[in-house]
Write a protein that binds this DNA or RNA. Structure first.
Lengths: 120, 120
DNA sequence: GCGGTGTGCAACTGTGGAGTTGCACATCTT
DNA sequence: AAGATGTGCAACTCCACAGTTGCACACCGC
């Protein structure tokens, strides 16, 4: 079998934004994102609508900002946060690409198993 | 202002599979997924290619299975795991939908701010 | 200037999860 | 039947992180 078409599959691997998934793997942060999507607000304003302290919210906002999921805008003594949809769409495209890569590989392996039976 | 076009925005919120993001927020689990995309294997086989113990891998595989990201197939005394691309694509679509929802809301808010200036 | 409001930083506690070791059970091989 | 290989369960350690309290500093209105 030709091995020229195998060299290109190595690029599937490292596209996993683990840090961003960690940012999304928290209920409080999703609540914050939902509130911000309703209307951009400051940390103190969010503290009035969520069952946790302002400092906890501030930490979450820091995580979300570093993940690129929210955008911080300083206005006087206030810091106004708003969600960034572009980042989420970008991750969505990456995930879909990875999923397609999986399916492609599995289909090839299945084809080899049925046809030759020697995938060494 | 008419409120008929506001009633439909409430559906944006609860589409956040936090449990699934938690499953994806781990380096070891991504390594496992990458190995499985190379070729489906058992927990013991994976233990030979990854720097962690078989039991740790077994735990990760349990998490991934419950998240629907891998499929387990028992064959004799072996359990063969393979990645499920469909689940990942599904999450990708959900994320994109949420992102579009954010952008839609923000644009509406900006329009209100410029035009009327009274979003009460 | 002075009080009120908003933000930031620094400990501290509690808990969940990653990884380990140890052992018991099931299955394949000879 | 006996050894080897694969899996599963249970307890333990360790650490990162969510959330808290407390205090110091920056900005707005009076």
């Amino acid at each position: 079998m030709p091995d020229g078409d195998i060299a290109e599959v190595g690029a599937v691997d490292d596209g996993a934004p683990v840090e961003l998934f960690a940012a999304l793997a928290d209920d409080s942060r999703w609540q914050i994102l939902v509130e911000l999507s309703r209307s951009p607000a400051s940390a103190s304003a969010l503290a009035g609508r969520l069952p946790i302290t302002r400092q906890a919210i501030a930490k979450h906002l820091r995580v979300l900002t570093e993940a690129g999921l929210v955008d911080a805008t300083k206005s006087g003594r206030e810091v106004r946060y708003e969600p960034v949809g572009a980042r989420l769409s970008q991750v969505a495209r990456q995930l879909d690409a990875i999923a397609r890569g999986w399916d492609r590989r599995l289909e090839r392996i299945r084809a080899l198993a049925e046809g030759g039976g020697d995938p060494s």
